[in-house]
């Protein structure tokens, strides 16, 4: 697949949050304020790119030659947890400003299904290394865009007073649904 197209598709047309509905827990809970949402989005982008790349290397250099593909799930999850842990330590030490803006979200990301999803998709679709990097980075950026958009929309809820019975998560799910409808319009522009 054309790398530019792959990047574009993963950011917009096959947005991980709005077409696959992965990573919904933080998408609903951490999208109340734009700057917090942006912090979470940046953390997701970073972790997604790093973990998918690392998992690609482990999958193709170790698991496939040894015939241990069935351990994929286990190994991927452990890799993700480790990378998140290391990232937290490193960012806290060397980039205190970044740590202030999204360090708190890193532990949350360990159990984010979008992160594992990307690693599994890249295997299913048999991407090469460069493709995996582009795809995971693009998906992270896509998730970031989606959560920032959601943050912006939710800020406006203050003015529109939705039905009380919807509650906060309820109206958020409805907004996410309408946003997803918008994204369906892109289907076929760049297929994934």
């Amino acid at each position: 697949m054309n790398p530019v197209l792959l990047l574009f598709a993963s950011v917009i047309t096959s947005n991980i949050a709005l077409t696959y509905f992965l990573g919904m827990c933080p998408f609903v809970t951490i999208s109340k304020q734009i700057h917090v949402a942006a912090g979470m989005g940046m953390a997701v982008t970073m972790v997604m790119t790093l973990t998918a790349s690392a998992n690609w290397l482990i999958q193709n250099i170790i698991l496939v030659p040894l015939g241990l593909e069935y351990l994929q799930f286990l190994v991927f999850i452990v890799t993700i947890a480790t990378i998140v842990q290391i990232l937290e330590i490193v960012i806290d030490r060397y980039f205190p400003i970044l740590y202030l803006s999204f360090g708190i979200f890193l532990p949350l990301i360990t159990v984010n299904c979008a992160i594992l999803g990307i690693s599994l998709f890249m295997v299913l679709r048999s991407y090469g290394f460069i493709e995996t990097v582009l795809y995971s980075f693009g998906s992270g950026v896509g998730w970031l865009l989606a959560i920032i958009t959601m943050g912006g929309l939710r800020r406006n809820l203050v003015f529109s007073k939705p039905l009380r019975n919807f509650g906060d998560p309820g109206i958020t799910a409805i907004i996410a649904g309408i946003m997803a409808l918008g994204f369906i319009g892109f289907t076929g522009v760049a297929g994934l």
């Binding site: 015939g67 351990l71 452990v78 330590i89 030490r93």
Partner: peptide, 30 residues
């Protein structure tokens, strides 16, 4: 086959544990 998986998962866990201990001792040591 099972032996191979066992050896792999044990050494994988060991490497990860060592890596984390190393990071904690070196980077997280102020």
């Amino acid at each position: 086959m099972i032996l191979k998986a066992l050896i792999f998962s044990n050494s994988f866990a060991l490497i990860i544990a060592l890596l984390l201990i190393f990071m904690d001792r070196v980077i997280n040591n102020y």
